[in-house]
């Protein structure tokens, strides 16, 4: 057999093949630097911190009004019945001219127990039509009490009784019921409804630090004065100074009832609720525990399962942390 001579070099190349030619190898990529662990931690930590702090700020500004609103509804439903029944005066004794002492305990407190009104209990409904305010007033003026609504200072007489009655209210957070108080003008009406009846006060004026005190005479002559206290400042989120609104009762007051002579420091004006430090610390610890548990769960379970379980838990604990922290802020803010 004869071998044919190989074709010469100018022979046409082979038939085109169906497989695409392999792409040329890419130039070597620069070595990918893994994101350093420290940077990751720092980022995470600060992101969480930012979220937590901004969340607290958002809670204070946006969510506390809702909470206070809900509290008001509950308190109002508690208060309606006894007021409608016109339950006789409570929290102390009355001595008439003949020396007869009469004492009555309202039905919402333990029967037969001679107690003063416990802090947090609703005592009155405060209405100021001029600023469209209608709030249930609770007893006590600590930061905690004032999260539910305006609070009556415990060492003063109840609104409607002879003497001077002080009511504190917030002006920035938790619904800021008293935010518009400084806009009140002389002669406008304030109505307070308590167990002892309905009382109409007329605004005497708004005063601030350095202004003369109102005349004590109408009070010593058997009248009643209501002073509403709150704070004001450059803008709604930055209250700073206390401001007072005085109002004098139109008509005859009820006799003054007994009340504590001394109140704890956290119920003073612009005081933080020091006892709230404990729950704050405890809930923060709970938050840490939850975070650690979630980190562990992330490893063991998986991303979405952890999120499903973890997010509600974290949010709930965070809410309590926020609530306790809010109590640490000054009570009038």
């Amino acid at each position: 057999m004869t071998v044919q001579a190989s074709p010469p070099a100018e022979a046409v190349p082979a038939v085109e093949e169906a497989v695409a030619p392999p792409p040329p190898p890419a130039p070597p990529a620069p070595p990918a630097r893994p994101e350093s662990f420290a940077a990751k931690v720092v980022t995470r930590v600060f992101a969480l911190l930012a979220a937590g702090v901004l969340g607290f700020a958002g809670y204070l500004v946006l969510l506390t009004p809702l909470e206070q609103d809900a509290n008001q509804d509950v308190l109002y439903s508690e208060l309606r019945g006894p007021i409608a029944e016109a339950v006789p005066p409570y929290a102390g004794r009355e001595e008439s001219e003949d020396g007869i002492i009469s004492r009555a305990v309202p039905p919402i407190y333990a029967d037969g127990e001679d107690t003063l009104i416990p802090a947090g209990a609703p005592i009155a409904v405060l209405e100021i039509p001029a600023i469209e305010l209608r709030q249930v007033v609770v007893e006590g003026t600590s930061s905690d009490d004032l999260t539910a609504g305006p609070g009556h200072r415990r060492d003063t007489v109840l609104p409607g009784q002879q003497g001077v009655s002080l009511v504190y209210g917030r002006a920035a957070t938790f619904g800021a019921p008293f935010a518009d108080l400084p806009h009140l003008r002389r002669g406008q009406a304030i109505t307070v409804v308590t167990f002892q009846g309905e009382f109409t006060y007329r605004v005497e004026g708004v005063r601030r630090d350095g202004d003369p005190l109102p005349d004590i005479e109408p009070v010593t002559e058997g009248g009643s004065r209501l002073t509403l206290v709150t704070v004001e400042g450059g803008n709604p989120l930055q209250p700073e100074r206390t401001v007072f609104v005085d109002a004098l009762l139109d008509g005859e007051p009820q006799p003054a009832a007994e009340r504590p002579g001394l109140i704890p420091p956290e119920e003073q004006s612009l005081a933080s609720d020091r006892p709230a430090l404990l729950p704050f610390v405890l809930w923060t610890q709970a938050l840490v525990v939850v975070a650690v548990a979630l980190a562990w769960a992330r490893v063991r379970w998986g991303r979405w399962e952890t999120h499903l379980v973890g997010v509600p838990v974290v949010l709930a604990v965070l809410w309590y942390v926020y609530e306790a922290a809010a109590r640490l802020l000054p009570n009038l803010a």
Partner: peptide, 16 residues
């Protein structure tokens, strides 16, 4: 005359 003594709180002002 007897004057009002108001109070100020740094914390109230700067918290938020």
């Amino acid at each position: 005359v007897a004057r009002t003594e108001g109070e100020e709180s740094w914390l109230a002002r700067w918290a938020i």
